[in-house]
Protein backbone atom coordinates (compact mmCIF):
# COMPACT_ATOMS: atom_id res chain seq x y z
CA UNK A 1 0.00 0.00 0.00
CA UNK A 2 2.75 2.38 0.97
CA UNK A 3 4.50 1.64 -2.22
CA UNK A 4 1.56 2.45 -4.43
CA UNK A 5 0.79 5.67 -2.56
CA UNK A 6 4.26 6.95 -3.17
CA UNK A 7 4.18 6.03 -6.79
CA UNK A 8 6.84 3.37 -6.48
CA UNK A 9 6.64 0.51 -8.93
CA UNK A 10 8.61 -2.53 -7.99
CA UNK A 11 10.46 -3.50 -11.11
CA UNK A 12 11.57 -6.94 -10.07
CA UNK A 13 8.62 -8.86 -8.69
CA UNK A 14 10.27 -12.22 -9.07
CA UNK A 15 13.29 -11.10 -7.13
CA UNK A 16 11.09 -9.53 -4.51
CA UNK A 17 9.26 -12.80 -4.10
CA UNK A 18 12.55 -14.55 -3.65
CA UNK A 19 13.65 -12.03 -1.05
CA UNK A 20 10.34 -12.38 0.77
CA UNK A 21 10.76 -16.13 0.70
CA UNK A 22 14.17 -15.75 2.26
CA UNK A 23 12.84 -13.42 4.91
CA UNK A 24 10.03 -15.76 5.84
CA UNK A 25 12.19 -18.85 6.17
CA UNK A 26 11.46 -19.93 9.71
CA UNK A 27 14.40 -18.96 11.84
CA UNK A 28 13.71 -21.91 14.07
CA UNK A 29 14.59 -24.22 11.23
CA UNK A 30 18.17 -23.01 11.41
CA UNK A 31 20.56 -24.41 13.95
CA UNK A 32 20.34 -22.41 17.14
CA UNK A 33 24.10 -22.39 17.35
CA UNK A 34 26.70 -23.59 14.95
CA UNK A 35 29.18 -24.88 17.46
CA UNK A 36 29.13 -26.21 20.98
CA UNK A 37 31.61 -26.69 23.77
CA UNK A 38 31.66 -30.10 25.39
CA UNK A 39 32.77 -29.70 28.97
CA UNK A 40 33.88 -32.37 31.41
CA UNK A 41 35.56 -32.16 34.76
CA UNK A 42 37.48 -34.34 37.13
CA UNK A 43 35.73 -34.94 39.46
CA UNK A 44 32.48 -34.83 37.45
CA UNK A 45 29.34 -33.09 38.62
CA UNK A 46 30.92 -29.63 38.92
CA UNK A 47 28.51 -26.77 38.67
CA UNK A 48 29.11 -24.72 35.51
CA UNK A 49 28.60 -20.98 35.58
CA UNK A 50 28.63 -18.77 32.50
CA UNK A 51 28.33 -15.02 32.18
CA UNK A 52 24.58 -15.48 32.02
CA UNK A 53 24.41 -17.59 35.18
CA UNK A 54 24.18 -21.29 35.97
CA UNK A 55 24.35 -23.59 32.96
CA UNK A 56 24.21 -27.02 34.62
CA UNK A 57 26.66 -29.65 35.83
CA UNK A 58 29.47 -31.46 34.09
CA UNK A 59 29.50 -33.33 31.79
CA UNK A 60 27.74 -30.61 29.83
CA UNK A 61 27.46 -29.30 26.27
CA UNK A 62 27.11 -25.54 25.91
CA UNK A 63 26.24 -23.48 22.85
CA UNK A 64 28.95 -21.09 21.75
CA UNK A 65 26.62 -18.10 22.00
CA UNK A 66 26.03 -18.83 25.66
CA UNK A 67 29.75 -18.30 26.23
CA UNK A 68 29.89 -15.25 23.96
CA UNK A 69 26.51 -13.54 24.41
CA UNK A 70 25.91 -10.47 22.29
CA UNK A 71 24.90 -8.48 25.33
CA UNK A 72 25.76 -8.65 29.00
CA UNK A 73 25.83 -6.52 32.12
CA UNK A 74 28.89 -4.32 32.53
CA UNK A 75 29.61 -5.72 35.97
CA UNK A 76 29.77 -9.21 34.46
CA UNK A 77 32.24 -8.28 31.73
CA UNK A 78 35.11 -10.14 33.40
CA UNK A 79 33.19 -13.40 32.93
CA UNK A 80 32.78 -12.91 29.17
CA UNK A 81 34.13 -15.90 27.28
CA UNK A 82 34.80 -17.91 30.43
CA UNK A 83 33.39 -20.99 32.13
CA UNK A 84 33.53 -21.22 35.91
CA UNK A 85 33.50 -24.65 37.54
CA UNK A 86 32.57 -25.12 41.16
CA UNK A 87 32.57 -28.35 43.04
CA UNK A 88 32.19 -28.95 46.74
CA UNK A 89 35.59 -29.71 48.19
CA UNK A 90 37.51 -28.27 45.25
CA UNK A 91 38.93 -24.90 44.33
CA UNK A 92 36.74 -22.92 41.98
CA UNK A 93 38.24 -22.81 38.53
CA UNK A 94 37.72 -20.08 35.94
CA UNK A 95 38.73 -20.99 32.40
CA UNK A 96 38.83 -18.71 29.37
CA UNK A 97 37.42 -20.62 26.42
CA UNK A 98 39.50 -20.85 23.24
CA UNK A 99 38.75 -22.12 19.77
CA UNK A 100 40.75 -25.23 20.57
CA UNK A 101 38.47 -25.94 23.51
CA UNK A 102 35.41 -25.69 21.29
CA UNK A 103 36.92 -27.90 18.63
CA UNK A 104 38.36 -30.58 20.91
CA UNK A 105 36.25 -30.31 24.03
CA UNK A 106 37.42 -29.22 27.44
CA UNK A 107 38.27 -31.48 30.36
CA UNK A 108 39.09 -29.52 33.49
CA UNK A 109 40.85 -31.13 36.39
CA UNK A 110 39.76 -29.44 39.57
CA UNK A 111 42.20 -28.95 42.40
CA UNK A 112 40.52 -30.62 45.34
CA UNK A 113 43.64 -30.94 47.46
CA UNK A 114 43.41 -27.31 48.52
CA UNK A 115 39.99 -27.66 50.04
CA UNK A 116 41.00 -30.91 51.66
CA UNK A 117 43.91 -29.13 53.27
CA UNK A 118 41.67 -26.31 54.35
CA UNK A 119 39.16 -28.75 55.73
CA UNK A 120 41.90 -30.54 57.59
CA UNK A 121 43.05 -27.21 58.97
CA UNK A 122 39.51 -26.44 59.97
CA UNK A 123 39.46 -29.61 62.06
CA UNK A 124 36.84 -31.50 60.14
CA UNK A 125 34.30 -28.75 59.74
CA UNK A 126 31.71 -29.62 57.03
CA UNK A 127 32.12 -28.09 53.55
CA UNK A 128 29.66 -25.27 52.93
CA UNK A 129 27.12 -26.02 50.20
CA UNK A 130 27.73 -24.69 46.69
CA UNK A 131 25.39 -21.81 45.95
CA UNK A 132 24.44 -19.88 42.86
CA UNK A 133 26.13 -16.77 44.21
CA UNK A 134 28.80 -14.96 42.19
CA UNK A 135 32.33 -16.29 42.04
CA UNK A 136 33.66 -14.12 44.84
CA UNK A 137 31.13 -15.50 47.26
CA UNK A 138 31.97 -19.10 46.33
CA UNK A 139 34.81 -18.91 48.82
CA UNK A 140 33.46 -20.40 52.03
CA UNK A 141 32.65 -17.94 54.71
CA UNK A 142 34.42 -17.96 58.06
CA UNK A 143 33.09 -20.38 60.58
CA UNK A 144 32.71 -18.93 64.04
CA UNK A 145 33.65 -22.22 65.67
CA UNK A 146 37.09 -22.27 64.04
CA UNK A 147 39.89 -20.22 65.48
CA UNK A 148 39.94 -16.94 63.60
CA UNK A 149 43.64 -17.03 62.70
CA UNK A 150 43.58 -20.53 61.19
CA UNK A 151 40.44 -19.80 59.19
CA UNK A 152 41.68 -16.45 57.98
CA UNK A 153 44.92 -17.98 56.74
CA UNK A 154 43.23 -20.83 54.92
CA UNK A 155 40.72 -18.46 53.36
CA UNK A 156 43.49 -16.18 52.20
CA UNK A 157 45.39 -19.11 50.70
CA UNK A 158 42.29 -20.16 48.80
CA UNK A 159 41.84 -16.72 47.38
CA UNK A 160 45.49 -16.54 46.41
CA UNK A 161 45.33 -19.89 44.66
CA UNK A 162 42.23 -18.86 42.77
CA UNK A 163 43.85 -15.64 41.63
CA UNK A 164 46.91 -17.63 40.63
CA UNK A 165 44.76 -19.93 38.52
CA UNK A 166 43.08 -16.99 36.85
CA UNK A 167 46.43 -15.41 36.04
CA UNK A 168 47.51 -18.68 34.45
CA UNK A 169 44.27 -19.08 32.52
CA UNK A 170 44.58 -15.60 31.12
CA UNK A 171 48.17 -16.17 30.07
CA UNK A 172 49.53 -13.49 32.35
CA UNK A 173 51.97 -15.89 33.99
CA UNK A 174 53.70 -19.00 32.68
CA UNK A 175 52.92 -22.52 33.85
CA UNK A 176 56.32 -22.74 35.51
CA UNK A 177 55.70 -19.54 37.44
CA UNK A 178 52.29 -20.80 38.47
CA UNK A 179 53.75 -24.06 39.80
CA UNK A 180 56.53 -22.25 41.65
CA UNK A 181 54.19 -19.79 43.32
CA UNK A 182 51.66 -22.52 44.09
CA UNK A 183 54.34 -24.59 45.84
CA UNK A 184 55.50 -21.56 47.76
CA UNK A 185 51.98 -20.74 48.85
CA UNK A 186 51.30 -24.28 50.04
CA UNK A 187 54.59 -24.41 51.89
CA UNK A 188 54.05 -21.12 53.67
CA UNK A 189 52.40 -21.68 57.05
Amino acid sequence: MLLSETGCQLPFPAALLLLCALVTVPAAAAEPTLRKLHLESDPPGAEVLLIGGKAGHTPLTIGERSIYPNDFRDDQAHLYGTVTLRHAGCATRVHRVTLDDIERGLNVTLDCSVRSAARAAAAGKPEPPVSAAPLASAIPSADASVPVTTEAISQRRLRQLQVLQELLDEGLISSADEQRIRRQLLKTP
Binding site: R35, R65, Y68, N70, D71, A77, Y80
Partner: peptide
Amino acid sequence: YNLSCAACHSAFPRLNKF
Protein backbone atom coordinates in the same frame (compact mmCIF):
# COMPACT_ATOMS: atom_id res chain seq x y z
CA TYR B 1 43.52 -14.66 20.15
CA ASN B 2 42.30 -18.17 19.39
CA LEU B 3 38.73 -17.01 19.77
CA SER B 4 35.57 -17.66 17.87
CA CYS B 5 34.31 -14.92 15.52
CA ALA B 6 31.19 -15.07 17.70
CA ALA B 7 33.16 -13.47 20.51
CA CYS B 8 33.10 -10.11 18.75
CA HIS B 9 30.34 -10.34 16.13
CA SER B 10 26.62 -10.86 16.53
CA ALA B 11 26.65 -11.61 12.83
CA PHE B 12 29.57 -10.63 10.64
CA PRO B 13 30.34 -7.75 10.28
CA ARG B 14 28.10 -6.30 13.01
CA LEU B 15 29.93 -6.04 16.31
CA ASN B 16 28.37 -7.19 19.53
CA LYS B 17 28.99 -5.50 22.87
CA PHE B 18 32.29 -7.25 23.40
